[in-house]
Write a protein that binds this DNA or RNA. Structure first.
Lengths: 224, 224
DNA sequence: CACCTTAATATTGCATACAACCACAATTTC
DNA sequence: GAAATTGTGGTTGTATGCAATATTAAGGTG
C-alpha cells in the first residue's frame, strides 16, 4: 500500500515505526528540519512512505525526548532553544558527563574503543571536507558511547536526555575554525584515554571538552 | 462512542489521549499494575473507555519515560527494577537533586511553598492512616516541585527522567516505621528551608534525605 | 515418551475513515 | 470603516478494520 509514489524512499529500519523515527531523527540531526519548523503529519507520511500512524508514534516519542514540541490540535514543531537554554545545557553536561566518562572508560570493550576512534576520525574527515552538518550526529554517537557504557542505567537515561538536545541545536555551526580544531583534539585525547583505560584522564578531558564547547557556543551567541 | 459499557470510568482528562496517559500513570504509581505485569491494549482500552489508539500513544509515552517496556509484537509490561538498579537510582539522585533544590528554593513562588507544605502534610496523613500506596504519587509531586522550578530546563528534564522510576518502584513499601518517620521529618525540614528561602539548607537536607532513602531501600532488599 | 510440526487463537502493527478542531478569510452588521 | 460572525480549508484526534506476528495447544512421528 506504500509502493506507489516512491520505492520506500530509503529504509532506515524494517518496521514502519522504527523507520519513521529513525528518519525523522536523522532529519533533525542533519538540520534538514530547522528549529521552529512545523512537522506536518501528512507531509512526513508521504515523504517517508508510511501512513500517519507511525509518524504520530515517532513524533510522540521525539516529543517525550524533547526534540520536538507538540501543541494539541496544532501539530508538532522542532524545538528551538534560546541562547540561555544552551548555556544551561552545557552546565548540566559539565556536571555529569565527566563522571559518566570516569565510570565508563574502565568498562569499555575493545569494539567500543575502536568505534570511538572511528567516530573521531569521521568527524575529523567531515571537518576537513566542510560537511559540518554531519557533525551533530557523529558527535552524538561519540558521546553516547561513554553515556551508554557507564554501568548506571539511570545515569545513562538522564544523560541521554541531556545529550539529545545538542543534536538539534547544531552547535558546531557556530564554532570558529580554531574552536573546531580544539574540539577535534579533545575527541582524539578522549580516544587516547579510553585506549589507556584511564578513567580519570577521560573524566578530566571530558570536563575540558565541555567547558570549551560552552564557551564556543556562548560567545558565538552573545556577540552577533 | 464510549457511552455504552460504563459512564467513562472517571475522567482524569478531557481528551482520550491525556485521560489514558493520566490513568495509566496513576495505576502505575498506586501499584495496581505490578512490575512485570502485562499491559494489554484491548483490556486497558475497555477499562478506561477509549479505543486502542490513545492507549497505544500513552504506552509509547510511558515507554519513552521508562515506566513500561515495549517488546515488539509482544506488548508492554511494567518495568521491574533489580535491587542494584534502585541503588544506582539513588546514587544519581544524590548527585543531581540537591543541586536542583539549591537552584529552585530561591525561585519558588508563595504557591509553590504552600503546595510543598500541603503535600508534606498529605504524606504525613497517609502514613498515619496506613495508606502507603498513596505515598509514591505524593512524593513524586513533592520532589517534582523542586525539579520543575530549578530554572534550568535541561536539568529539569534529566531529573524528571530520574524521578519517574521511583514512582513505580514503590520504595516506601519497604520502609520500616522508623525510616518512614525520618523521611517525613526530612520533608518537613525541606518545607521549612523552602519557607526560609534558604537554598543551601534545602540542598543539604535533600542530600540527607536521599542518602537515608537509599539506605532504607538497600538494606531492605539485601536481607530478606 | 520426547520432540518436532502444524493449526488455532490472541495480540500487536499499520492503514484508513471520519469527526473534532483551529486558523484565517470573506461577509455581515453596527 | 471597525468589529463581530460565519464559512471554509486544512490539520489533528480517535475509532476501527485488516494483516502480520507471536503464543499456545494439539497432533503426529521417531
Amino acid at each position: 500500500m506504500n509502493t506507489d509514489s516512491t520505492p520506500p524512499d530509503n529504509d532506515f529500519g524494517q518496521n514502519a515505526d522504527e523507520s519513521a523515527y529513525a528518519q525523522l531523527r536523522s532529519m533533525l540531526a542533519s538540520g534538514i528540519l530547522q528549529p521552529g519548523a512545523w512537522l506536518r503529519e501528512k507531509t512526513l507520511a508521504e515523504r517517508i512512505g508510511v501512513s500517519r500512524t507511525p509518524i504520530r508514534e515517532a513524533l510522540n516519542r521525539l516529543a517525550a525526548e524533547g526534540l520536538v514540541e507538540i501543541s494539541r490540535n496544532k501539530g508538532a514543531q522542532v524545538v528551538s532553544f534560546t541562547a540561555g537554554d544552551i548555556a544551561d545545557l552545557y552546565d548540566v553536561r559539565a556536571g555529569f558527563e565527566p563522571h559518566a566518562a570516569l565510570l565508563s572508560v574502565p568498562r569499555l570493550t575493545e569494539e567500543d574503543v575502536e568505534r570511538l576512534g572511528l567516530l573521531a576520525q569521521q568527524m575529523e574527515d567531515a571537518v576537513q571536507a566542510g560537511r559540518h552538518s554531519e557533525l551533530s550526529a557523529l558527535n552524538g554517537a561519540f558521546h553516547g558511547i561513554f553515556v551508554e557504557q557507564c554501568g548506571n542505567r539511570h545515569l545513562s537515561i538522564a544523560l541521554r536526555a541531556i545529550l539529545r538536545p545538542t543534536m538539534v541545536a547544531h552547535t558546531f555551526m557556530s564554532y570558529t575554525p580554531e574552536e573546531l580544531k580544539r574540539s577535534m583534539q579533545h575527541h582524539a585525547e578522549l580516544v587516547a584515554a579510553a585506549k589507556a583505560r584511564d578513567g580519570e584522564w577521560a573524566e578530566a578531558v571530558m570536563r575540558v571538552h565541555i567547558l570549551a564547547a560552552k564557551n564556543a557556543v556562548v560567545t558565538a551567541n552573545s556577540n552577533p
